[in-house]
Simulated assay, not measured.
Amino acid sequence: MAIVKDNILLQFVRGTLGKQLTIYERNGQIIMATKRGPSRKKPTQKQLEARERMTIASARAQRMMADPEVKAYYASLAGPGQNAYNMAVKDAYRSPEIQSIRLEKDEVVVTAKNEFRVAEVEVKVVDADGVVTESGRAVLGWNGVDWHYKATALPAGGKVIVEAENLPGRYTVKELLLT
């Protein structure tokens, strides 16, 4: 790979020359590199899984780019050499993380993080027989990380099921057993 500086001949040339050389621009710099071809090795299972995840993330990102507000949000997070679509793919590739579920009196407090932002947190209260007694959306607290849900009753022997979702629709589920 070579970075071309102040060369009038290659200033407006982009693309592949023959089957040997590729010229492209990245972050305002002209780069010359040998042409890469497809790998001749059979992909591993892990590579196939990563490709599948990337395909799904790309499809979610394309759907999100149709919304001008979401597109503007991701564009505001893009750095040099990146765009809104790149940020949307990055967000769609990973699920949010539920770090903790705490009970404070009759309130369920969920600490959920995502590299970009958690869109919503849903809380379900299940009794000892497995019946959902109540459910609803938690409200984001002032610190931007804790989500609060006011429960009417937390039955002993039951559990609290929390689902955190990010903008692209990826979600994480975590449970807390009630004693």
Rank of each mutant, 00 (worst) to 15 (best):
A2Y: 14
A2S: 11
A2Q: 14
I3K: 13
V4G: 08
N7W: 10
I8M: 11
I8F: 05
I8A: 15
L9F: 10
L10H: 03
F12T: 12
R14H: 04
T16S: 04
G18S: 08
K19I: 04
L21Y: 13
T22E: 13
Y24M: 13
E25F: 06
E25M: 10
N27V: 05
G28K: 14
Q29W: 05
I31T: 12
M32S: 01
R36Q: 14
G37E: 12
P38W: 02
S39L: 06
S39P: 03
K42A: 12
T44L: 07
T44F: 09
L48R: 14
L48G: 02
E49Y: 13
E49A: 14
A50I: 09
A50V: 05
R51L: 04
R53E: 15
M54C: 07
I56E: 12
R60V: 02
A61T: 01
A61W: 01
A61H: 06
A61P: 02
R63C: 04
R63T: 08
E69P: 04
V70P: 00
Y73I: 03
Y73E: 02
L77K: 14
P80R: 14
P80C: 06
G81M: 08
A84E: 07
A84W: 03
Y85M: 11
N86E: 00
M87P: 04
K90W: 06
K90V: 06
Y93V: 12
S95H: 07
I98M: 05
S100W: 04
R102M: 13
R102I: 04
L103I: 13
K105N: 11
K105R: 10
K105G: 15
V108S: 01
K113L: 11
N114I: 01
F116L: 05
R117H: 04
E122H: 08
K124F: 15
V125E: 05
V125M: 02
D127S: 01
D129N: 14
D129T: 15
V132Y: 07
V132W: 03
T133S: 08
T133Q: 08
S135M: 10
R137M: 12
G141L: 08
W142A: 12
N143P: 04
N143K: 12
V145F: 11
D146C: 03
D146W: 03
W147T: 00
H148Y: 10
Y149H: 02
Y149D: 03
T152Y: 15
P155W: 07
P155H: 06
A156H: 03
A156Y: 05
G158M: 03
I161S: 05
A164E: 00
L167M: 15
L167N: 00
Y171M: 15
K174L: 06
L177P: 09
L178D: 09
